[in-house]
Nucleic acid binder design. Structure first.
Length: 526
RNA sequence: CGCGGGAUGGAGGAGCAGUACCUCGUCAGGCUCAUAACCUGAAGGCGCCGGUGCAAUUCCGGCUUCCGCAACCA
């Protein structure tokens, strides 16, 4: 059984989860569910990044001790994961001394043993108010705006990682495709960065500056800086550095890291360099998604355009949030979402689309056939094809005979191949759109034949149409569970079929027993 | 000249050399099985200026403009 290891980046818990975190969670979840269905032994990791000066300050501002603060903050992320029906196999916390620290420590030790860690002097502008280093861009006219003071120039002793040593090798691995970065434009960005020359980076901070973190092994005067601390989660979660590290052997190297474009560079440069130094294989793929904007602006508290995933879930349900994020956020570029847009997608595609289609089809089955739809003769099925002004056919299909395009044909020749092709390239949005496309065709199909009229004149043909509709819905719901697990289940329930039956059994099916169910996606008032 | 990515009908997205496609919205018809849902039709578009092509939204150059990143910012 092939293994498949997939990770999300670990959100920093100094604030509440936002829609961007939800995006990465659902993308990873859809991929994990898909790989499981393909028969892979999947390990899906997510977690939270809980160390550092910012957290310590946020805790102080909240008036609680740091431990309590991170316990509470990380719980919000766990809640989000739960509410979105995300299915991780592990949720690592960097403040977990038992499960995470050993891995980070082991990573540090290996890098040190390799001779890639040395003490150096870190120079920078230190803002007393921030209790942290600041950069030029944080300043206005040389003054820290938050505190109205000029930062001090100070030097301090840090551990440095010999990053420059590995720049060439990382570059080579990317160029030769061992470490694949998708989309390509991100790979180009990273390569350009590597070509420009890379300097060694500071890997620690004096413990007095970062009291909340992992002490440097053998030198408690320093605390690990974020790189070794946070990035190590991808191996610590597999037991790296502990006696029970069997999962390292099974799952490492990682098959795909999902990250946002803001941290792509860290994952494509620093992390691979660390792994090379530590003598571990590099991940195979880094998948870089864009950011979500709202109303053309970056989401920010001051603009008041933050989209809160919890309130969306409350209003529209988790399935709807998954739908919007997976189907209507372009995979690799930034997306723009507004509350209006989300409402529109929910109403048009889910309530009026899928939900209503299932209602009308099941209602007809129940009213006309008491819910029992038996498979008609093939010749009868062939007599109710999709009408051929279907603009979703490819150009080369234009000369097809009208009678050949049954819903069955369309699903097998168009929907499924396109759907699978999309998956091959991790085009989650395209794959989901193929399914939605099918639902739209079915709505049109109902109107084209009007089984609600036919039932009065030709009961047999009405049944053939309903059979086509029901079995098409059955196909569609089998393509859905990776994206909308609850919806797929609900549709299967109405159709009276198990979701996990094999293709073979499904194709032999000769009868459906439809039951009634409440609307899948009730209308929501704005 | 720091690096990179965009600019497609009212909105959001595909396409990327040969009648410009989808979703939403708008307008006009139709239908009644359905969650005042569904179907059909119509109006409306490739940022600007050059260049190379028989042909450019699609390739090249410039401009305008938006957005990331610019190393210790998760």
């Amino acid at each position: 059984m092939p293994k498949f290891y997939i990770t999300t980046s670990i959100p920093y818990v100094n604030g509440p989860p936002h829609i961007g975190h939800a995006l990465e969670f659902v993308q990873a979840d859809a991929i994990a569910r898909w790989r499981r269905a393909q028969g892979d032994d999947v390990f899906f990791l997510t977690g939270t990044d809980e160390h550092g000066a910012k957290i310590a300050r946020a805790a102080e501002a909240a008036g609680s001790d740091t431990r309590t603060f991170v316990d509470e903050s990380s719980q919000h992320f766990r809640n989000l994961v739960k509410q979105l029906s995300i299915t991780p196999d592990n949720m690592i916390r960097t403040s977990d001394k038992e499960h995470h620290w050993p891995g980070a420590v082991e990573m540090w030790k290996r890098i040190t043993e390799r001779g890639d860690m040395y003490k150096g002097v870190y120079k920078g502008l230190y803002c007393v108010g921030h209790e942290a280093f600041v950069t030029e861009k944080d300043l206005k006219d040389g003054i820290c705006e938050d505190h109205g003071k000029a930062p001090e120039y100070i030097e301090e002793e840090n551990y440095f990682f010999h990053l420059s040593e590995y720049a060439e090798e990382v570059k080579r691995q990317i160029e030769e495709g061992y470490l694949e970065i998708i989309p390509h434009t991100r790979a180009n960005e990273v390569l350009a960065f590597l070509s420009a020359g890379v300097e060694d980076i500071s890997f620690s901070r004096p413990a007095k500056d970062i009291p909340w973190g992992i002490p440097v092994p053998g030198d408690s005067s320093n605390t690990m800086y974020v790189w070794c601390d946070a990035l190590s989660n991808y191996v610590s979660a597999l037991g790296f550095g502990t006696s029970s590290d069997e999962r390292m052997g099974t799952y490492w190297p990682c098959d795909i890291h999902l990250v946002g474009k803001d941290i792509a560079r860290f994952h494509a440069v620093i992390w691979p360099a660390m792994l090379l130094s530590a003598g571990l294989p590099l991940p195979k793929k880094i998948f870089v998604h864009g950011h979500i904007h709202s109303g053309g602006r970056k989401m920010s508290k001051t603009l008041g355009n933050i989209i809160d995933p919890f309130s969306l879930i409350k209003t529209y349900g988790a399935e709807a949030v998954r739908y919007v994020l997976l189907g209507h956020v372009p995979l690799f570029s930034d997306a723009d979402l507004t509350p209006d847009r989300i409402h529109e997608l929910y109403t048009a595609h889910l309530a009026n689309g899928v939900g209503n289609l299932l209602s009308r089809v099941s209602a007809m089955c129940l009213q006309y056939f008491d819910g029992h739809i038996t498979r008609p003769a093939d010749v009868l099925l062939a007599s109710v094809p999709f009408k051929l002004d279907i603009d979703v056919l490819d150009a080369r299909d234009r000369d097809l005979k009208v009678g050949s395009v049954t819903p069955e044909w369309f699903i097998h020749e168009k929907t499924i191949p396109r759907y699978q092709a999309a998956w091959e390239e991790y085009r989650l949005d395209s794959a989901l759109q193929e399914v939605m496309q099918l639902f739209r065709q079915l709505d049109r199909y109902v109107q084209d034949y009007e089984p609600f009229k036919l039932i009065k004149t030709d009961r047999e043909q009405a049944q053939a149409i309903l059979w086509s509709l029901v079995s098409s819905l059955h196909h569609a719901c089998r393509l859905l569970p990776f994206f909308l697990p609850e919806t797929a289940l609900a549709i299967a329930e109405v159709l009276g079929v198990p979701l996990n039956e094999t293709d073979e059994i499904m194709h032999k099916r000769t009868v459906y027993t439809i039951t009634k169910k409440e609307p899948l996606f009730p209308r929501v008032e704005k």
